[in-house]
């Protein structure tokens, strides 16, 4: 595999052909914030928090670092006033949905984002897709689905699958940047398969 030389924040970075800008930056110890990215999962590009400026042949533009493949002589800037402002706005928009997410609160502090800039519309889910994709790609159980589109888009546990697979797994819980995933799971459980959980409860009590 051929080696590619690029420049990130003024630093020469060696990368391999198949890497993304995010991977190259991380390998060089340069931090780019992410929300929907997960090492075990296919690149997704849902949150755009990883936006960076790239320059090729004298032209600069904004791209998602978690998706953008490295190329020779690419110049990457991970912090510019424009990039930082964009990230701040993204964080503010997400905080309209999940104002108390720890991950967002940390980011808000870093970027000086105002959690009350936009009217609150607490859906609590950021639609990062980590839960859905982890269940699909890593566990291959396909127990969670995205349903609907646009402003109505949400995640749903599929009761038929969740009742069989989720109780002993729950590996997606810690991935969620909010508590919405857990809430959605327990709601599904209570509504669709309470007996299974009661049985489990009875077992642990013995």
């Amino acid at each position: 595999m051929s080696e590619i030389l690029l420049q990130i924040d003024g630093k020469d970075v060696k990368a391999t052909e198949t890497m993304t800008v995010l991977e190259a930056a991380r390998s060089a110890g340069i931090h780019i914030p992410t929300l929907c990215h997960h090492e075990k999962l296919e690149p997704y590009g849902g949150c755009r928090l990883c936006t960076v400026e790239v320059e090729t042949r004298g032209r600069a533009r904004l791209v998602a670092a978690c998706l953008f493949p490295v190329q020779p002589d690419l110049i990457v800037r991970t912090h510019t006033p424009e990039v930082d402002k964009l990230r701040k706005t993204i964080i503010e928009l997400l905080m309209a949905h999940a104002p108390d997410s720890f991950e967002l609160l940390d980011l808000a502090q870093e970027y000086g984002a105002d959690r009350n800039r936009f009217d609150q519309e607490s859906s609590f889910c950021l639609l990062c897709g980590l839960c859905v994709r982890y269940c699909n790609e890593v566990k291959q159980k396909n127990a969670i689905a995205f349903v609907d589109c646009g402003a109505k888009r949400e995640i749903n546990f599929i009761p038929e699958i969740a009742s069989q697979e989720c109780r002993d797994c729950k590996e997606c819980f810690p991935l969620c940047p909010t508590s919405y995933l857990q809430a959605a799971y327990f709601l599904t459980e209570a509504l669709a398969f309470p007996h299974e959980s009661n049985a489990a409860h009875a077992l642990t009590k013995k």
Binding site: V132, N136, N142, A143, I144, A145, F146, V147, D148, C149, N156, I158, E160, I161
Partner: peptide
């Protein structure tokens, strides 16, 4: 096609 994918498409359009 996994059921969750079918559901996703069926509710999207």
């Amino acid at each position: 096609v996994p059921f969750n994918r079918v559901l996703q498409v069926a509710t999207f359009y």
